[in-house]
Amino acid sequence: MRIVHVSDCYLPRTGGIESQVSDLAAHQVAAGHEVHVLTATLGAAGERGGVVDVVDGVHVHRLGARMPFALPVTPSGPRLLRAAFREVKPDAVHVHAGVLSPFAYDGARIAMALNLPVAITWHCMLDGVVGSLRAAVRLAGWDHAAAALSAVSSAAAGRVREVFEVPVSIVPNGMDLRLWTPAGADVRSGPVHLVSTMRLAPRKRAVPLVELVGAAAARLPVGSLRMTLIGSGPEQHRVEAQVRRSGLDGVVTLAGRLTRDEIRTAYADADVFLAPAELEAFGIAALEARASGLAVVARRGTGIEEFVEDGVDGLLAVDDDDMTEAVMRLVQDDGLLASIRSHNRSVRPAFDWDVVLAAAESEYSRATGLIR
């Protein structure tokens, strides 16, 4: 099968969509497909305007332009997208969308106009924009679009369904579970070690995370817990200031950005993963931690509920105060923490790449069946 992925953002940019689209494309190549990626993101050396890189067997079409702040947008996008579709002649077009994805939406519109099979996957939560998007969809005539719609989790799919009022499937994020399988016996001692991995940006809520950890530490005996926060981003200085303001210099370690290998090493020494984001469409970092055997504490109503059952894989909280209580509960109840960690070390989550590849191919078949 000749598959074309369309995504505003792609490597060398780093982030959830970028890593998932590149990993999916690489696994599809390994499965014997011809795979192309059309993106508005420039190459590492500034490749743009239609230059094609071949990386791990994936043909990456750099259709972007030099823009302020390296924004992945391009005035020539529609023309270049149309030309690429006509040249590649794909059997399926897989569009990867966020709340603001002008390049991806152009790709979907043009592919449908060319009568190509189109599958669109949302990698975001549409909370707060459902009404405006529903109006825009109807104005553009997309409420009758011949495309197979999906999202990365049930929570995200529910919002897409509200916008389009049509069936919405699940194409989850994937990972190589073997890389995250814990090795050796589960031996822990000392303070409960909390860990969180995120981009230090407002949407991920790193500052509230430090606040709630500080609230838990203040109500527990000294030395009961410690925390490692992995990641970097625009909120770095605010996070550092909150650590100082909360008197957590000896409790919270800011590890900065780490490689996957370094993160796996950090998880081997940790007990609990904290995911404070309210608009988490899937939560790949939480899934990696869950696969590593850590108990996960996360917000209810997010995509993390796809693989975390309350009281089994971790604890789910309705707000920050509830998350503070969950942290305290795991610190104080050795039996509960041991039970969750034992379960997570022995029961594998069902999100390996074979599951994702099958879900994607099912969407391509569904998209083909919608062609008029």
Rank of each mutant, 00 (worst) to 15 (best):
D352V: 13
E235H: 09
S101Q: 05
F69M: 13
H343N: 13
G314A: 11
A104Q: 11
V118W: 08
S7C: 14
R329P: 12
T197I: 13
V207H: 04
A146C: 10
L316I: 08
G190P: 13
P12A: 11
L220I: 05
D8N: 12
V187K: 10
T39Y: 01
G141T: 12
Q20H: 15
L81A: 06
A30G: 11
S232F: 05
E325N: 14
H193R: 15
R260N: 12
L80A: 05
V296T: 13
A156N: 05
L81M: 14
L116K: 08
R66T: 10
R161M: 06
L220F: 07
K204Q: 11
V163Q: 01
L209P: 00
V73Q: 02
V95P: 06
L42Y: 00
G233H: 09
L24R: 02
A151K: 06
A275W: 02
D310E: 07
R341F: 00
F351V: 10
L330Y: 05
H61P: 03
L133D: 11
R178D: 15
D261W: 03
A291L: 07
M323Y: 03
D320W: 12
Q242I: 01
T41K: 04
S153D: 04
V213A: 05
D8S: 03
N173I: 01
T253F: 06
G107A: 06
E262D: 15
A92P: 01
L81N: 03
D261I: 00
A183S: 14
